[in-house]
Design a binder for these strands. Structure first.
Lengths: 354, 354
DNA sequence: TTCTGAAACTTAAACGCTTAATGACCCCTA
DNA sequence: TAGGGGTCATTAAGCGTTTAAGTTTCAGAA
């Protein structure tokens, strides 16, 4: 039943050759053995049901053919609650697997730099994708003097210009979104922000403020609420915004999950979306088109960003080069049903009749 | 920059002891070294920035401290489209990581038994979780004479009674759900089934039929539609059902994703849910309470099932025993807004006034 | 007839760690 | 004074591969 697995040595003995020859046959180095030897070896391999041990291979070669996908504690440890992470991961796997790289998920449970080092430096992966680290993450210094290829996804640090990162231009994208809302007649625009120490949250907030300033809208402090990207924060944030007087005519979710939570809160408060308040998000997750009403949002191609991340890692490994610097991915406004032009009070009745 | 990583030998030299002693200190075998030796070793470890190489450790010990989570091709390779898989995986990771086991996702891209063997027998994991294999999966024979611990989640094969599996009693749960609908006055009940070769789909369909038969309802062939668990199948299936004359008063999604697709289709066809048709699902995924209306469904504790799977694997590894047989997890009907009692035509107007 | 070189293998040293076996030393006891 | 036990270390044989370097054989060229 649980008899030992055959090793390359067993195959060699069975075929009457050396282990080196077996290894060569296994790797198809055709100029190192005679065709009839090859036959014998393959027959022995099949006869014994031999399967190479990846561990031993990796150790001997110093390469594991595995890519690490690193999640930090603040990502919440649940893929089902973090569509951003899940989508990027999907794309990452999509690219890596057909290119013969396996994917190892490294879920860090503490902020302890020691745990980071232990998990990242244990020799089990050839390269890393670092998912959206926060500003003070131990990953930043680690990345700066990493010996293996890595790529950061979804976070971009202007003061760390050498770090290879894939991100969208959060500041500008949010600026454009707000400008679009303003173009639709909105002036009182609430904003459900993300984590205080997350670059994307900071950058999006900054774009929001800049757009309002440029439009000559005096920003009110109470318009900015929330402190995380999540449904719950979206709900809570929207509740606060709906209670304001005068109430914002539009609510921006710093991420789609926040916006979805906001829509939920509007339903619960009996405030029609987009009738009385427009809601927009950022990301375009799978659930975005499925909400009622479907969410208008800024699309980041997360799946493709995941694929690109895997591609860049594999290219770096194969070419033995190192890439640096930020790669900015264009975003796109996706208009669906959750936002509509704001009509001044006077004509509001008319607007509803149409 | 890319200077080589220090090995245990470097530490030994630096501390003036043998590698065996370093290894012993690293593992806290306190009766094998003097306290002051321990100090020296730790100081050297820190001085050199030494990190053990897991590969070498695993090879030497024959244990990797890694659990494999095996997804087959039919799972669709995208976690974001398969909430069932994602939720189970979340639970699996939740249990494994704090218990010092890493999780490796093994995504099989073909049905080729060779790929299976290569991926499963490469020595990189100590045990496996097999996610919901289909009936003719190469995993079944493989599991039967596996040498490592494994557990199957979400599929249960009555004719393979020794396979350790975690599942709910799909047949009975669906029977109960249908009976409940019947108790609510429904008689014409549509069913969006899952894959033809998936045990859960077959079992749920069988429960559906048995309940209708027991209630003396003559089942009509056109009531059973669909051939996969997915939003698209749910939409397409519901469209067919809505076109029937007389139209079903209730639609069962073989899985929540199907039910969600069905609700979507009803919206698109202008058929109010639950006003004119009740829709119910199976699973209780995260999105279930968020749809409009919130989905009434049969809850399977998928997250907990994932945790249990990890737990059973780790227990088997630690006790060096092997568990067998099916473990049935109780289900629970979660009543939300998407289903309501069916009122015969006569009183229908009245029902709508309330 | 000797030399050269290609073809086909084998040898053996890595890769970085674990662990059973062994040994040296010292103290205690009979 | 020999022997027995504890301590605290070291030695060396694995774990299952890869691969550079070396060996043997033989054909063909000089």
């Amino acid at each position: 039943m649980s008899r030992k697995k055959p090793t390359i040595g067993d195959v060699a003995r069975h075929a009457g050759v050396s282990t080196a020859t077996v290894s060569n046959v296994l790797h198809g180095k055709t100029d190192l053995y005679a065709p009839e030897t090859e036959d014998r070896v393959w027959r022995s391999v099949r006869a014994l049901g031999y399967r190479p041990n990846q561990l031993a291979r990796s150790l001997a070669r110093g390469l594991t053919h595995t890519l690490g996908f690193v999640l930090e504690r603040h990502h919440g440890m649940r893929l089902t609650r973090n569509p951003y992470a899940a989508t990027v991961l999907d794309g990452f796997i999509e690219y890596a697997v057909p290119h013969h790289y396996q994917v190892k998920i490294i879920a860090l449970t503490t902020e302890d730099p020691n745990e980071y080092a232990a998990a990242l430096e244990d020799g089990t992966v050839d390269a890393f994708a670092l998912l959206a680290p926060v500003q003070n993450s131990p990953m930043i210094p680690w990345a700066s003097n990493a010996t293996k290829p890595y790529v950061m996804i979804g976070s971009w640090f202007p003061d760390e210009p050498t770090i290879l990162s894939i991100d969208s231009d959060n500041e500008q994208a949010m600026y454009d979104l707000v400008q679009w809302l303003i173009g639709q007649g909105h002036r009182r625009i609430g904003f459900i922000r993300g984590p205080y120490n997350h670059p994307s949250a900071i950058q999006r907030l900054s774009g929001y403020k800049r757009a309002l300033a440029d439009a000559g809208v005096q920003i009110r402090e109470e318009w900015v609420v929330g402190e995380a990207y999540s449904m719950e924060e979206g709900q809570k944030g929207a509740q606060k915004l709906l209670a304001l007087e005068p109430r914002p005519t539009a609510i921006i979710g710093g991420a789609d999950v926040s916006a979805l939570g906001a829509i939920e809160a509007c339903w619960m408060s009996g405030v029609p979306v987009p009738g009385e308040v427009s809601v927009v998000g950022f990301d375009d997750i799978e659930a975005a088109p499925l909400s009622q009403p479907a969410l208008t949002t800024v699309r980041q191609p997360m799946y493709e960003m995941g694929m690109l991340a895997a591609q860049l890692l594999i290219e770096q490994l194969q070419s033995e080069t190192r890439l640096t610097g930020p790669i900015m991915i264009p975003t796109e406004l996706i208009e669906r049903g959750s936002a509509r032009p704001w009509e001044p009070i006077a004509s509001k009745g008319a607007a509803e009749i149409r």
